[in-house]
Simulated scan of single mutants.
Amino acid sequence: MGVSVFTFLMSLIWCNVFILLGVLCRRTLALKHGVNLILAMIAAGIVRLLVPIELPTVIVVRSEEIMPFFQRFFSAQAFEMHEHSVNWLDIILAIWIVGSVMHLSLIAWTLFQQSLKIRRMRTEDHPRVSKLAEELGRDFKMTSKCRVVVSPDVKTPMLVGYFSPIILLPPLALTDDDMRYVLLHEWNHFIHRHLWIKLLFSTFCALLWWNPLVYMAESDLDYLLEVSCDRASVRSLNTEERIKYVEATSNVMKQLVTLVTRSTLFVGFITAAPDRIVQRCELILFPPKKISKTIKILTIASLIFLIILSYAFVFQTLYRPPEDDSPKVTDVSIVPEHSYLKEKADGSFLLYINGEPRDSLSREDINYPPFSDLPIHK
């Protein structure tokens, strides 16, 4: 069990495969059956990227063109700095790491700014809202205490707080039933850890900032989480109560004066365009048929099979030793203990074994075993 450049490339390929599956299914499958399967596909991609190992039973598929091309490109010298050769792989990794650090820093800064805004937020005293939140907590036997803050600085009902939930509300003129549905919706965001899911996706996008697929997967995340939250909120409601839930959504929309700014770090009651709000209401009033257990089992089994398959084989470079009429390189053991390479003025290398020059090698030859393991003397 080990890690190499080839296993890392395979992990990147399979990570994109799982993300692509989630992207292709995110609208049809998620809207009808929830986001859990989509999240499972994305999670499989993340795990595959973070665990780029090569199992002892792996099948090695030798590549004669594609892998050698990548190997030559990554190992090619871009420039020399302080007598140290810098290849293209070093440059790509440096750009990748710097970009990821910048994106992660931006996420941390946004969270800090959000925390400051909440602390400085103007608040209004609404005993009725606090009482409804306490009643909701008792009715649903909530284990965590939820704090409700009403402020004119809030543009839409939203949930913040990763460990201690805070429901932020604008000063809305709602009936008790409407306010209860709004609070229930936001609380379900906390129960289902939607804030953590969004933070995970933001982190994933920061780590793979150069990959357009992760942004495609994240593009509908707000909407899919809202649909998922609606499903959880109305699961135990009858038809009449579902209609009231939709009316509460409509009443909140009417009172929102400004458009809602999309954020990656909170989840809110209204975070979509009007046409999507209409679709949310249709899914609440006319929920699709539940997916059968057989389909669920088959889907999960297929996903597990793909994960196992991703570790079953790996592409590696097919190495053929250079043809040479002289037997002096191939008839001895070439190991770093008594062998080394010495660079010549013309850019080629001279192989020394036991202190004696044995053969001349090109720069391309030394990229392959056993010469790639030998030290180079200037």
Rank of each mutant, 00 (worst) to 15 (best):
V3Q: 10
W14H: 13
C15T: 14
V17F: 12
L21A: 14
V23A: 10
R26L: 07
T28R: 10
A30I: 05
K32R: 15
H33S: 13
I42P: 00
A44N: 02
I46N: 03
V47W: 07
P56H: 02
T57W: 11
T57K: 10
V58Y: 00
V61G: 04
S63N: 05
E64I: 01
F74K: 09
S75K: 07
F79A: 07
H82D: 10
N87E: 00
I91W: 03
L93Y: 00
L104D: 04
S105K: 09
W109P: 03
Q114Y: 01
R120Q: 12
R120N: 15
V129P: 03
E135G: 02
R138C: 07
D139L: 12
M142I: 14
K145E: 14
V148F: 04
D153L: 09
V160L: 01
G161C: 05
F163H: 10
P171Q: 07
L174E: 00
T175V: 07
M179D: 00
V182G: 05
L183N: 03
L184N: 09
W187E: 08
W187T: 14
W187K: 09
N188E: 09
N188I: 04
H194F: 03
I197W: 01
F204M: 14
L208C: 09
D220W: 05
Y223R: 09
V227E: 07
R231A: 15
A232C: 01
E241V: 02
V246P: 02
K254T: 05
L256I: 15
T258C: 06
L259Q: 11
F269A: 06
A273M: 10
P274N: 04
P274F: 03
L283W: 06
L285D: 06
P287I: 13
T294E: 07
T294Y: 02
I295G: 00
I295Y: 03
K296H: 07
L306H: 00
L309V: 08
Y311D: 07
F315K: 04
Q316A: 15
R320Y: 07
D324N: 11
K328R: 13
K328W: 11
D331I: 06
V332K: 12
V335E: 11
V335G: 00
H338M: 11
S339N: 03
L341I: 05
K342G: 00
E343V: 05
A345D: 06
F349S: 09
F349I: 10
L351E: 04
D359L: 11
S360Y: 06
S360V: 15
D365Q: 08
D365A: 10
Y368Q: 08
F371M: 08
S372D: 12
L374Q: 02
